[in-house]
C-alpha cells in the first residue's frame, strides 16, 4: 500500500463515519425512517475491502452505506436514498437497506439474512461463463453463516470452482445474540474449511483487510476457486436504530472501542507514511464538507412522483 492509497483509505473511513453520524442525526430528526443499521466501528473492513476489490462485482447486506460509498457511489445519492428521495440511488423506493448501483458493480443492499449469497454464486457463475477476468465478492455477517443458503453456496461454489470471495464480517453478534450461543465456535471460517481455502484477518486494521482481500482476489481470479475470508470486527452502535444495545456491558464496549480503526490508521499514516497533521486535517475537513453537501442535497432533492409506485416492476409494461 502506498501513501496515496493509504490517504484515500483514511479519507473514506472518515467520510463513512461522518456519513453514519449524519444518518443517525437525521434519523432522530425524522428525515430518515425504517430500519437504519450503522456501520460505525466497522469502517476499516468496509472501506479497505472495497478498495482491494475495486473491480469485480459486490453483493452485500443491509449494513452497506459505507461500502456503497467506498465503491464510488457519491454520498449525496446514498443520503438522498435514506431521505427517500427520487434522486437517491434507488429512487427512494429502496431505502437504507437497499442500495443498488450496477454502474459501480454494487448489487445491494439485501435484507434477507444470507439471501444474497446464492445470488453471488450465480453471478460468479456468469463471470466464469463469460471468461471475465474479474471475480465476485459477497459480504455477510457471522449470523448469516448459520443459514442453509450459506452452506449450499459453499458447496456449489467449491464444486464448480467459482471465482467467488466469501467475506464474513464477524462482529460476533446477530442482533442481540452472541455467535457462540448459536454456533459451536467463534471462528466461522471453520464452516468453510472442508470446501475451500480459508483466511482470516483483523477487520479493525484497514491495512490487514486490504492485504487479505487483495490476496484472496488474486487467488479467485487465477482459477484457484472460491476463498473464504473472515474478518473480525466490532460494531459500536446497536444492531439498528431500534436496538438499545443493552446486551453488551460497558466493559465489552470499552474493549471494542479501544480497537477503533480510525485513530489506529491515522497513527500509522503519521508514522509509516509520514503524513503531517495538516495533511490529515485537510482530508478530514474535506470529508466533513462532502457530508454536509450530501445532507443539503438530500434535503432539497425531489420527492418521487406518485406514478413511481407502479414503475420498474417489469421491463415491459
Amino acid at each position: 500500500m502506498d501513501k496515496l492509497l493509504a490517504k484515500e483509505i483514511y479519507y473514506e473511513m472518515f467520510l463513512g463515519r461522518a456519513f453514519e453520524y449524519a444518518a443517525k442525526e437525521y434519523y432522530m430528526q425524522g428525515n430518515i425512517s425504517g430500519f437504519l443499521h450503522l456501520d460505525i466501528g466497522q469502517e476499516a473492513l468496509s472501506v479497505a475491502s472495497m478498495k482491494a476489490f475495486a473491480k469485480g462485482d459486490v453483493f452485500s447486506t443491509y449494513r452497506e452505506h459505507v461500502m456503497a460509498i467506498a465503491r464510488g457511489i457519491e454520498p449525496k445519492y446514498v443520503m438522498a436514498e435514506l431521505f427517500a428521495k427520487a434522486d437517491g440511488v434507488s429512487g427512494g423506493k429502496g431505502g437504507s437497506m437497499h442500495l443498488f448501483d450496477p454502474s459501480h458493480f454494487f448489487y445491494g443492499g439485501d435484507a434477507i439474512v444470507g439471501g444474497h449469497i446464492p445470488n453471488a454464486v450465480g453471478c460468479a457463475y456468469a463471470r466464469a461463463y463469460q471468461g471475465s477476468e474479474e471475480g465476485v465478492m459477497v459480504v455477510f455477517g457471522d449470523g448469516a453463516t448459520n443459514g442453509g443458503a450459506f452452506f449450499e453456496s459453499l458447496n456449489i461454489a467449491a464444486t464448480q470452482k467459482l471465482p467467488l470471495l466469501f467475506l464474513c464480517e464477524n462482529n460476533e453478534y446477530a442482533i442481540g445474540t452472541h455467535i457462540t450461543r448459536t454456533a459451536p465456535f467463534r471462528e466461522q471460517a471453520k464452516k468453510a474449511e472442508p470446501f475451500m481455502l480459508t483466511m482470516s484477518c483483523d477487520g479493525m486494521d484497514a491495512q490487514a483487510v486490504y492485504k487479505s482481500v487483495s490476496k484472496a482476489k488474486d487467488l479467485i481470479e487465477k482459477g484457484h476457486g472460491p476463498v473464504f475470508l473472515e474478518a473480525f470486527t466490532c460494531r459500536f452502535e446497536g444492531h439498528s436504530m431500534s436496538d438499545a444495545n443493552a446486551y453488551r456491558s460497558s466493559l465489552e464496549m470499552k474493549h471494542c472501542k479501544n480497537k477503533d480503526p480510525l485513530p489506529h490508521f491515522k497513527k500509522r499514516l503519521q508514522e509509516k507514511w509520514l503524513c503531517s497533521e495538516e495533511e490529515i486535517t485537510a482530508l478530514e475537513q474535506k470529508a466533513q464538507s462532502v457530508i454536509e453537501e450530501a445532507v443539503e442535497f438530500a434535503k432539497n432533492a425531489n420527492e418521487p412522483e406518485d406514478k413511481a409506485l407502479y414503475e420498474h416492476i417489469f421491463v415491459e409494461a
Binding site: S33, A84, S90, G92, H98, P304, Y310, I313
Partner: peptide, 16 residues
C-alpha cells in the same frame, strides 16, 4: 393494497 412491492418512501408506501 396495490399490486406492487412495498416501497420505502412514506408517501408511496401509504399509496400502496
Amino acid at each position: 393494497g396495490a399490486d406492487v412491492p412495498i416501497p420505502y418512501n412514506r408517501h408511496l408506501e401509504l399509496l400502496s
